[in-house]
Amino acid sequence: MGNKELLNELLIAWEETYKKGQLTFWIFLSLKEGKKYVDEIKTFVEEESNHSMTCESQSLYRNLRKFQHVGVVDFETGEGNKGPERKYYFLTELGNALLNAFIERNIKLFYNEKIKHLLNKED
């Protein structure tokens, strides 16, 4: 196996592990932007992650039901586009607090000057 192939294989394996649990973050981020129905969440996740994240609508519904059950997400029904009423999901107060705490503890680390320098450093 050449180095290029090995690099690719390692990268894919790493990304597969890394992406587990990432969907929640992207869903919450899309709802932080504003109320959305499932197709809009899906579009946001895929486009804003440069298509590194993909998700099926069924998977989104399942996750949203879990989040609603624990009280971090809720929905209100609104008019659909010439179709049946849609569920517009939004973050609850608890959901917002959870996302903010998560960002504070896990994402803002990357704003640290030393880390930013390391991320931009090319060997």
Partner: peptide
């Protein structure tokens, strides 16, 4: 669990 959902399944 958290409200009946396994902690392992919550954010999978």
């Amino acid at each position: 669990t958290i409200k009946g959902i396994s902690k392992d399944d919550m954010f999978d």
